[in-house]
Amino acid sequence: MDSQAIATSPEHTPSVEHAHPPYLRHHFETVEQQREASSFGMWLFLLTEIMFFGGMFAAYLIYRNWYYPAFVAGSHQLSIVLGTINTAVLIGSSFTMAMAVYSAETRNRKALITYLLLTITLGLVFLGIKSDEYHEKWEKHHVPGLNFSVHDFVNVNPAYPDDKPLPLDMAEKTQVYFSLYFAMTGMHALHMIIGISILIILVIKAYGGSYTDGHVSTIENFGLYWHFVDIVWIFLFPLLYLISRHQ
């Protein structure tokens, strides 16, 4: 499909001479080739991320079918309000990130820095809300392995008075739900933390004038990463919070 991309007929090569900006690395022929290569590389990295999270999504699918009542009871312990707010926050940060890419493309340094800072802020808000949720789980003894008690599941959940309490063996299985909850949201949060760390470096470099000189690959590729993290959450939100609301 792309057999003619770079392996073009010889008349395609002379474009070498016309542009040789400082950010063009020596082993690439053209800026376009460098850009395509780096964005393709980033996408391949995102493929590995899909498969990385994919393993956990597969586990979720299997265990939800096995322990449906436990998954319902587990998800009834989450706050849909906080989940929705967090989804909105993350979508907002994706929007500001997209705008940061646009600002870099239009060589607007001030706007770039503003949008990057906004993205950091929204990312931190997300993590703040998430840590509040984690804290609540800890208080309620819902952390498998470290701090878990079946108490909430063998008794009626006051937020859902119609739910029948689970028999003990099924109540034990809520640990699988919370194991997945912490593994999935934890991995997602770890990706957010890595993302925010990189964002801070990007802001510092943007102050120095980087990314607004026509070389936008770094910002663009980081944008891809950030949007990917957003997509993971877009799936985690309904799976963990929403789809088990009704039994």
Partner: peptide, 14 residues
Amino acid sequence: TIGIGIFDPTKGGD
């Protein structure tokens, strides 16, 4: 390390 139960049969894992 933590004791989550995704593969642990005693917690319901497979």
